[in-house]
Design a protein around this nucleic acid. Structure first.
Length: 583
RNA sequence: UCCCCGGUAGCUCAAUCGGCAGAGCGGGUGGCUGUUAACCACUAGGUUGGCGGUUCGAGUCCGUCCCGGGGAGCCA
């Protein structure tokens, strides 16, 4: 992959587009006249019994010129046939078990020109992926020490982790080498190292390979008497207090990798469906979008605010009127959907509610697709496809981390996700849900009746006891939903949807939007929303209005759902909650 | 914001009815071992969240404040 056409200046977004545009249709059984990349080494002795192995990969031809290909598996480096440039990793791995067929997906790091770090070092994940090819070869890695175990027969074992994967690389230090032995007292839990050595087969039972060190450089020591992270398990509460060190733990590191993969997968999902990525503003002037309390944005000092008479104060403020941090990009996304078709936003969102729970943050990330010419059914379909795609990508690309979460964080995780993937999402009208709950025989703390919002205990009954998977509730009473949701023909309900998942509750909230001018104005009057503040929103219904729909997906809740972490504060690198804005 | 629970060694937690402040892990020292949550021995480590009160005596009871967790509401 190192010769792919990515310029130095291209960044994350460009890479995403290239991968998408050059994606390859795959059909390993077929063998027609199209370009094939033969993978002869995969049929070597070690893989004879692997029936699920591909023998060839069909590369879809685009209008790019032919290009020399090469890519890596952990079975070795191979040069492929002449073929147009393409990017295998993401799509290919959907078809095979990741441990059987793992492609190297970091082309940027492999050519000298693009390599960002010091020296010819490999990421530890790369070492494991290519371990057979690298056996007996010189390998350099750099990272942070997780543990050191000494043996008096002349070796010391240092486990190194660089965040590229969950597993540590065991470094073997022979103490008969004086220059290495001298370093050992400085090497402790938390210190940072460069290790050059030879990759060898390991006699130990916990790992297949290890790095026999020939040279070690200590970048930075970590005083063992004061280093806050121990080898032992720490409580999440404690780790939050050391937010600058907690990504060095197994769990928070794995969460970061899953969150990264999901963020990328969200873009992939929408880009593949030709949605446009729209950046909506973070500072807004509308404060009552029906989605919670807002943070004030101002350059005024406290003394400027004193003694003023309301409106006049804001004339002196930066924007000349009250402004706030956004609680949603939806209304602005609607503007672009009504010009460009399908769009999505993906960015930070702010709510100043004083909510102190395991599912709420004051600053969180939200994905908000908005689709023109789309009704509630289309909305539901997109939402279900998105959730399933996210589960799929974690299964295929984060298998090691997922196994870790399933073992140490949430034992029912893998089974639960598998069920989400294999079964259709349950879609349930609110009215029917109320009936089910009333006839459930459960002793709820809060009674269920048509017209009132469902309580957490009701949602939990539906997702965790009754259906045991994702449930979409639709058609809620209009009185309990915001003004922009489309009123149904019964005049009593709106075309809303809440998608609930086990453990988390609401993960997606969306609706078909009210596109009819008269109905929208009615709704605004009923909810007491001033028309003057939403002139532009109303005009969208006056000029070329179309049926359209959208939803909001909370990234952190998605991360919670897919990793099993119980508290949302572990699903974001730097959680902001009432009283907490540290690091 | 409301309800419940908690705050004791660097970390995780014990301490009976109000009666001498404890363990495991981590740190240090020594020993043993191709180790892998390593193991064995010794050792250092404390204003029991803050302030006030009751009592001969408070980690323990009362008041108050601070902090954390769980649940509820709001929602993504």
């Amino acid at each position: 992959m190192q010769d792919c056409v990515i310029n130095d200046s291209r960044r994350f977004q460009d890479l995403l587009f290239l991968r998408w545009q050059n994606r390859i249709p795959l059909n390993p059984q077929k063998n027609d006249s199209k370009t094939h990349l033969l993978l002869p080494q995969l049929r070597g002795q070690n893989n004879k019994d692997r029936k699920d192995f591909p023998t060839s990969v069909e590369a879809g031809t685009r209008d790019s010129p032919p290009h020399q290909q090469s890519f890596c598996t952990h079975h070795g480096l191979m040069r492929g046939a002449s073929a147009p440039p393409f990017f295998l990793p993401i799509h290919l791995r959907l078809f095979y078990h990741p441990q059987v067929f793992v492609l190297d997906r970091s082309p940027l790091h492999q050519s000298g020109r693009n390599r960002p770090s010091m020296g010819k070092t490999l990421r530890i994940a790369q070492v494991f992926r290519q371990e057979r090819a690298l056996l007996g070869k010189a390998v350099s890695v750099q990272g942070w020490v997780r543990t050191r175990r000494d043996s008096k027969v002349g070796v010391s074992f240092v486990e190194l982790n660089d965040g590229s994967c969950l597993r540590n690389l065991q470094v073997v230090v022979a103490t008969d080498q004086p220059d290495l032995a001298l370093l050992l007292p400085r090497i402790s839990n938390g210190c940072s190292l460069l290790v050059e050595g030879t990759l060898t087969a390991s006699p130990g039972r916990e790992q297949s390979v290890e790095l026999l060190a020939t040279r070690i450089h200590v970048y930075g020591e970590a005083n063992p008497a004061t280093y806050p992270l121990q080898k032992k398990r720490h409580s999440f509460e404690y780790l939050r207090q050391i937010g600058h060190l907690r990504p060095r733990t197994n769990t928070l590191g794995a969460v970061a990798r899953v969150r990264n993969r999901l963020s990328f997968a969200i873009h992939q999902f929408f880009q593949e469906r030709e949605f446009l990525y729209i950046q909506t503003p973070i500072i807004t002037a509308s404060d009552c979008e029906g989605a919670g309390e807002v943070f004030r944005v101002t350059t005024l000092k406290p003394e400027d605010m004193a003694g003023g008479d309301g409106e006049n104060i804001y004339r002196k403020d930066f924007f000349g009127k009250p402004t706030y941090l956004t609680v949603s990009g939806q209304l602005q996304a609607e503007i672009y959907a009504l010009a460009l078709g399908n769009v999505y936003t993906f960015g930070p969102t702010f709510r100043s509610e004083n909510s102190n729970t395991s599912r709420h943050l004051a600053e969180f990330w939200m994905v908000e697709p908005e689709m023109a010419f789309c009704d509630l059914d289309g909305d539901l379909q997109t939402a279900e496809a998105l959730i399933k795609a996210m589960v799929q990508v974690v299964f295929s690309d984060c298998a090691e981390d997922l196994a870790f979460f399933n073992r140490f964080i949430e034992p029912s995780l893998a089974g639960e996700l598998q069920k989400t993937l294999s079964e259709p999402m349950e879609v349930l009208p609110y009215e029917e849900a109320v009936r089910i709950l009333q006839n459930s025989g459960e002793a709820f703390q809060f009674p269920v009746s048509w017209g009132s919002d469902l309580q957490a205990e009701h949602e939990r009954y539906l997702t965790e006891k009754l259906f045991k998977r994702a449930v979409a509730l639709i058609h809620f009473p209009r009185a309990i939903k915001p003004f922009y949701m489309r009123v149904n023909d019964d005049e009593q309900t709106v075309a809303a949807m809440d998608i609930l998942v086990p453990r988390i509750g609401e993960i997606i909230g969306g609706s078909q939007r009210e596109e009819r001018l008269d109905h929208l104005l009615d709704q605004m009057r009923l909810k007491g929303i001033g028309e003057e503040d939403y002139r532009w929103y109303i005009e969208l219904r006056q000029y070329g209005s179309v049926p359209h729909s959208g939803f909001g997906l909370g990234l952190e809740r998605l991360v919670q759902y897919l990793t099993g972490v119980g508290n949302i504060r572990e699903a974001i690198p730097f959680p902001r909650t009432p009283g907490h804005a540290d690091f």
